[in-house]
């Protein structure tokens, strides 16, 4: 009797583990939040185009990750994309006139939010908004710009 019970217990645990693994694979949402549990403050920035910036993308300053994108939404009134991101509160000395741009890590890499330090005496704090932003560079637009400008130059010659 004791043995049957342990067999049933083992099988039950195995099936549960398998189903949990299946659930994990289907959801794949776990992700390790490097900022979880740490203090953060959130800052807003508005862009005319965010490219393919996604929630949880890194926020980097001088190439070092200092925070994460919290949400990317579209504001129907100002017709702009509103990006809210949180910065580790260890970095509370960032000038409030710093500018934010959406950059791509490598050619195939994912997009991230890059901050460039400004010169203001005041620093960013919870709820503040970044004034100077630069939208994502869309490669297709660049290419078409280049193509059309070179062809119009030829016409002038």
């Amino acid at each position: 009797m004791q043995q049957t019970r342990s067999v049933e217990l083992g099988t039950g645990l195995f099936v549960l583990l398998g189903l949990a693994a299946l659930f994990f694979l289907t959801m794949q949402t776990t992700g390790s939040n490097t900022l979880a549990g740490e203090d953060t403050y959130s800052v807003t920035a508005r862009f005319s185009n965010v490219g393919s910036l996604k929630v949880r993308a890194p926020v980097a300053m001088s190439g070092v990750t200092i925070g994460r994108v919290q949400s990317v939404e579209f504001d129907p009134v100002s017709l702009e994309a509103v990006v809210v991101f949180e910065i580790d509160s260890r970095y509370d000395q960032i000038p409030d006139d710093s500018d934010a741009s959406i950059l791509t890590a490598g050619i195939l890499g994912s997009q991230y939010l890059g901050l460039q330090a400004g010169g203001s005496e005041f620093s960013l704090e919870d709820g503040s908004e970044i004034q100077f932003t630069q939208s994502a560079i869309i490669i297709e637009q660049l290419i078409s710009k280049y193509l059309f400008s070179s062809s119009s130059e030829k016409e002038h010659e």
Binding site: A21, L22, F24, L25, T29, S32, N33, R56, A57, R68
Partner: peptide, 25 residues
């Protein structure tokens, strides 16, 4: 597959320094 993903995460993120957010995102 699930354990394999954890192994890849351990090597990629914790050992080689790929960003955890980028890895999952």
């Amino acid at each position: 597959s699930a354990i394999g993903l954890l192994g890849a995460h351990l090597v990629g993120v914790n050992l080689l320094g790929v960003d955890a957010g980028a890895f999952w995102q």
